[in-house]
């Protein structure tokens, strides 16, 4: 995908709710013992949803960017509070950007990076100067389903504008690869998604991530060694390392963005949250390779180059991985009450 104007990231932020449930607690209730693939997952409080978490990340990202005028707010999510009523419009009002486009996007776990591409397109074509791309979810797994171990809550945002010297990183390249693959879905009016178990691995996650990544490496004429960091969607703690190895990326390149073990899969926020953790550690000149994955299925790949200004803009902010160390544990009863597992 080519743009007329160079595209830059001017601010970034990610949010993880304060509450965690151990997967051993979920397994205790449904299996009598054991644990999920990850240690714990982040759970949104009873009064949190995609709107509240998106406001949180939007304000922080806008603060880092110096409060530029926003021409578009796109929210990628599969857990929007209203089936019909734009989350983007609610946010535009709360943030005071009424002269903007505002809409929601859905593509399972890659809806957030879709928002990045849409806003990049608007900036790249000159239609807007700055836009907000948000990925946010309060993901749900059916009670007792294996997805319940990983389906978590979180949000991440990027302020995207022209790469004009004030940006902290430049999006040098992006591409996508999609196909009709029935690995995971949720029908209208259903509270919980359905999936095809192991089928979510090879033909879905691995095939789409690899196809999109290989195309990006080929188009840019780069190899994994040309990047300091690599990000792959993390539906569980293992998959990003497995797919990275197949593509030739090392554990060290992936580790800075790896958060699944502690907070689970934050769905549409997942890849962007890993980018946030990676930008927390990156230095000017570093290159970041990032491929998201969304069931249904598809992947978006980005090549990002970090710029000098990141050092100044990041000053004083607490790294996401540091902030994640503060949490409160809840048991399955509270989790079930808060997240709508108990229905009248």
């Amino acid at each position: 995908m080519k743009s007329i104007n160079p595209i830059g990231i001017h601010g970034y932020a990610a949010y993880v709710p304060s509450f965690r449930i151990r997967t051993s607690e979920i397994a205790r209730v449904w299996k009598g013992g054991g644990a999920g693939p990850n240690e714990s997952k982040a759970v949104a409080c009873f009064d949190e949803d995609v709107v509240t978490m998106s406001v949180e990340v939007a304000r922080e990202a806008l603060g880092m960017a110096g409060g530029p005028p926003i021409g578009a707010i796109y929210v990628g999510t599969e857990s929007k509070p209203y089936a019909v009523k734009s989350t983007g419009s609610i946010l535009s009002d709360m943030l005071g950007f009424n002269r903007s486009l505002g809409a929601d996007l859905e593509f399972a776990c890659k809806a957030g990076t879709e928002a990045m591409q849409v806003v990049s397109g608007l900036v790249g074509s000159g239609m807007i100067d700055y836009g907000l791309a948000i990925g946010a979810d309060t993901a749900q797994g059916a009670p007792g389903d294996e997805l319940e171990h990983t389906a978590a809550s979180g949000a991440a945002a990027l302020v995207i504008g022209r790469a004009d010297g004030n940006d902290i990183a430049e999006i040098k390249y992006s591409t996508s690869y999609i196909s009709d693959t029935p690995d995971f879905w949720r029908r209208q009016t259903q509270h919980f998604p359905s999936h095809l178990g192991r089928f979510t691995g090879e033909p879905a996650y691995f095939d789409h991530t690899i196809q999109s990544s290989k195309r990006a490496l080929s188009d840019t004429g780069t190899t994994p060694k040309d990047y300091r960091f690599a990000i792959f969607h993390q539906p569980n703690p293992r998959f990003p390392f497995d797919v990275g190895k197949r593509l030739g990326f090392s554990q060290e390149q992936i580790m800075p963005g790896a958060v699944n073990n502690l907070i689970g899969n934050t769905y549409a926020a997942g890849a962007m949250m890993a980018l946030s953790c990676t930008l927390d550690e990156a230095n000017p000149g570093d290159r970041i390779f990032m491929t998201s994955f969304g069931s249904g299925a598809g992947s978006d790949t980005f090549v990002i180059e970090v710029k000098d200004r990141i050092l100044k803009r990041r000053l004083g902010s607490v790294r996401l991985k540091e902030r994640m160390k503060k949490f409160m544990l809840i048991d399955y009863g509270i989790y079930a009450k808060w997240r709508g597992k108990i229905r009248e």
């Binding site: 009064d47 709107v51 406001v55 209203y82 609610i90």
Partner: peptide, 20 residues
Amino acid sequence: MVIRRWTEEGPTGIIYYGYK
């Protein structure tokens, strides 16, 4: 200040957001 759900008009009604 954070924005949170205050309450909602049942499962079909408006969701009220506000400061906490």
